[in-house]
Nucleic acid binder design. Structure first.
Lengths: 229, 229
DNA sequence: CGCAAAACCTGATAAATATCATATTTAAAC
DNA sequence: GTTTAAATATGATATTTATCAGGTTTTGCG
C-alpha cells in the first residue's frame, strides 16, 4: 500500500496536485489512512471537521437528512475526490453526512496543512475553487432535474449516471451496487416507487437484474426517456 | 452616482473586499456600469462571459431552461452579489441565464483583472472560494427541499425567503414583486398550482395580496407548514 | 443449518400535482 | 382612452406519486 501522497495516483484527480513539493510533504507527514467498511460513516451532518478526507478507494454517499426522516443523497464521491472540503474552507460544520456504500480506503488530512496552503499558494486555492465551481454547476443541474423531471426520468438518468461514473463489471452489471433504498434516495422518491420503476424497466427490456445488481440492456431507450420521448 | 469601486458600498458584501488597493484600482478603471431594465437579460445560458457582473441595485433571477421548456430559478441575486463568477473561474460557458426581475444597475468587470488577481492574491481567491462554498451549501439545501418537501411547503418557504432576503415595503407587502410565473419557477411547480396555493393561503389568512403584490399575514403559520405541522 | 431481520416486491388505494379549458382581471400598446 | 394581449384565477379532470398492507426473497448470524 503506497503511503506517500507524493506517489499517490489519486492526487492527480484532485486539487492536491497544485501543491508544491514541500506543502505536499507536510500533508503527507500529517495524514493518516483509514479503512471504512460499507455502511460505516466517515462523518455526520452537523459535526465539526478538523480535516478533509481524500478517497483512495471505494465510494461514499453524501446525504442530508430532511425533517420527514428521509435521506437525500446529494452526491456520490469516489476515487480521487476530496470530501469535507467545503466545510473546512467555509469554517462551518458539515452540512452533509458521508457514509460508505462500498468498502473504502480514505486518507484523513488535518486541516492545518490545507488551510495554511490556502492562504499562501494561490494556485492551490484556485484549483480548489475550480473543483468547487464544478460541484456547484452539478448541484444546479440536480436542482433542475429534481424540479422538472418525472421520477421515471430521474430513475433512467440515475442508471446512466452510474454506468458513466462507475462502469460495469465483467458480466455487464453496474459496478456500483446500491440498495433500492439508496437508489430511491438519489432519485428522491419513495422506495416502492423506485422498485416499481425498476420492474417496469425490466419488463420493457431496458434493464436486467440479478439480486441487487442491475444491468443496462437498452441504453438508448433510457436516454430517450430522459430526453422526454 | 458613485463610480469608483474603492468607494462603492456593495463591495463590502462580496469578495472584492479582499483585493488590495492597487488591484481594486485596476478593476475600477476597467469596469463599466450598465443599467438593465426589468425583463432584460444580462446573459444567457451557454454564452461565454468575458467578465463578471457586480450587482449594485435591483435583483436578477438565475435560471436554467429544462427540456420541457420550463425555466427553473436556481437563485435570486441582489445588491452586492457577483454573478458570472462560477463561469469565469471554471473557464466554462455559463450554465445559467441571468434576467433582471427589477430594474438593475450592474458593473461589468472584465475577467482579466479578476483572473490575474486570482493567480496572485490568495486572500482574494480564498474569499471567492468561501462565497462559492456558501453557494454550494445553499444549492444542496435546495436539492433536499425540492425532493423532500411538498409544493405547499416549498411555497411557504419561498415567501419566508422573500421576506428575509428582500424585506417588506411600507404597507407590509414583500418588497420584491415576482410574477406568479416566476414564483412557480422558484418553487418548481406549475403556474396553476402556484396560484391555487396562493389562493388557499389567502383563505387561511396566511397571506394577503394586492395585484401582484403579496404580504405575509401569519408568518408563524407558514413556518409551521414548512416544518411539517 | 435454521431462524430472524432486513431487503425486495406487488397490489390497492389515497393524496398530491399537472394539465386542460375557460373566465376574469390587469397591464401594455396603439 | 380604447383595444389587445398578457397575467391571474378557478373548476374539472387526468396523471403521477406516495402510502399502506401484505407478501416473498435474500442475507446475516448464532
Amino acid at each position: 500500500m503506497e503511503s506517500r501522497c507524493e506517489n499517490c495516483i489519486v492526487r492527480q484527480f484532485n486539487s492536491l496536485r497544485a501543491m508544491s513539493k514541500e506543502e505536499l510533504k507536510r500533508v503527507s507527514d500529517s495524514k493518516t489512512t483509514r479503512l471504512i467498511k460499507k455502511g460505516e460513516a466517515i462523518f455526520k451532518e452537523g459535526e465539526k471537521l478538523d480535516g478533509v478526507f481524500c478517497v483512495r478507494d471505494g465510494v461514499s454517499k453524501l446525504s442530508k437528512l430532511s425533517e420527514n426522516g428521509k435521506d437525500q443523497i446529494v452526491k456520490l464521491a469516489s476515487k480521487g475526490e476530496v470530501i469535507g472540503q467545503r466545510s473546512v474552507v467555509a469554517e462551518e460544520s458539515v452540512n452533509l453526512s458521508a457514509v460508505a456504500v462500498s468498502d473504502m480506503e480514505v486518507c484523513f488530512i488535518p486541516k492545518e496543512g490545507i488551510v495554511s496552503t490556502l492562504h499562501t499558494n494561490p494556485n492551490f486555492t484556485l484549483e480548489v475553487l475550480r473543483h468547487m465551481a464544478h460541484d456547484l454547476k452539478e448541484a444546479d443541474d440536480v436542482i433542475v432535474n429534481m424540479s422538472q423531471k418525472s421520477v421515471k426520468q430521474r430513475m433512467a438518468e440515475a442508471f446512466l449516471y452510474l454506468k458513466n461514473n462507475f462502469g460495469e463489471d465483467e458480466e455487464g452489471y453496474l459496478r456500483l451496487v446500491l440498495s433500492r433504498e439508496d437508489i430511491s434516495n438519489v432519485v428522491g422518491t419513495a422506495i416502492e416507487s423506485c422498485i416499481r420503476i425498476i420492474s417496469e424497466f425490466k419488463k420493457k427490456g431496458y434493464l436486467r437484474t440479478s439480486g441487487k445488481r442491475i444491468g443496462i440492456k437498452d441504453e438508448k431507450a433510457l436516454k430517450n426517456l430522459v430526453e422526454g420521448f
